[in-house]
Design a protein around this nucleic acid. Structure first.
Length: 228
DNA sequence: AGCCAGGACTGAG
DNA sequence: CTCAGTCATGGC
């Protein structure tokens, strides 16, 4: 594995050291994020669909609506298809997301229960998730990590922006390349990947809204720290 | 008052 | 295969 160089500094760290340094810097700065906020595994699955390109606050309302209606269950959702658009409206894209939720629930039913489905070997679980219309790589990995508990690193838009500003990636790599780059150079640990993704999102939400890295931007502080 | 969120799919070219 | 267009509400 070739060394990664941060463009802003002359220091060169091994990928292992660099990635872990980023992780621990974020962890020390923001503390544990305790994702996924959902209580049950099904809540994680539903939340993963509803939060696609959507603010989590809007998703919470939708999930609460499902809870209040008492239909936050596989059968409950399948039997209430007609009510879903109205109940999840706050999460946006309510028509396509209704369809996606139904698709996921149907897939789960093929395996009888959610626990059985999530108990599949990782590779099978991932390919089954990706075969569902409306579930892409990020959503699949979110379910694999936060519901099934397998150690996988999730790549999202924030991850791309932050890593490219830190000079770790060029930015045009595909999902799998970035994921393997991280997983080949960090311990494959569920807790680490759980917090790592959540921490990158937290950093992104605060400081990385299309702001180029510059002096005074906290992201440059992170960049400096990871090179010391 | 816009801009954009913890994406994924489709149709053009 | 790359990529703009589409889906949509609520928060800041």
């Amino acid at each position: 594995m070739k060394p990664v160089e941060c463009q802003r500094e002359s220091g060169i760290l091994s990928p292992e050291t660099l990635l872990l340094k980023i992780y621990y810097t974020l962890y020390d700065t923001f503390g544990p994020q305790h994702w996924w906020p959902g209580e049950s595994k099904l809540e994680v699955v539903v939340g993963a669909i509803l939060t696609q390109n959507t603010n989590w606050k809007n998703v919470e309302k939708a999930i609460n609506n499902l809870k209040e209606r008492g239909i936050l269950s596989v059968d409950g959702i399948l039997e209430s298809e007609g009510l879903l658009p109205e109940l999840i409206k706050s999460a946006g894209y309510y028509r396509v997301k209704t369809e996606r939720l139904i698709n996921v629930m149907k897939k789960i039913k093929e395996y009888k229960t959610l626990d059985i489905f999530l108990g599949l070997p990782v590779e099978s679980l991932r390919s089954e998730l990706l075969s569902i219309k409306g579930v892409g790589e990020e959503t699949a990995d979110s379910i694999i990590l936060y519901a099934a508990g397998y150690p996988v690193f999730i790549v999202d838009a924030y991850t791309r922006r932050i890593f490219s500003r830190l000079g770790i990636i060029r930015g045009n790599e595909d999902y799998g390349e970035i994921q393997s780059m991280v997983m080949n150079n960090t311990p494959n640990d569920t807790y680490l990947y759980n917090e790592f993704h959540a921490l990158l999102v937290e950093l992104g939400k605060r400081y990385c809204r299309k702001i180029p890295i510059h002096r005074g931007c906290p992201l440059s502080i992170l960049c400096k720290e990871v090179n010391e």
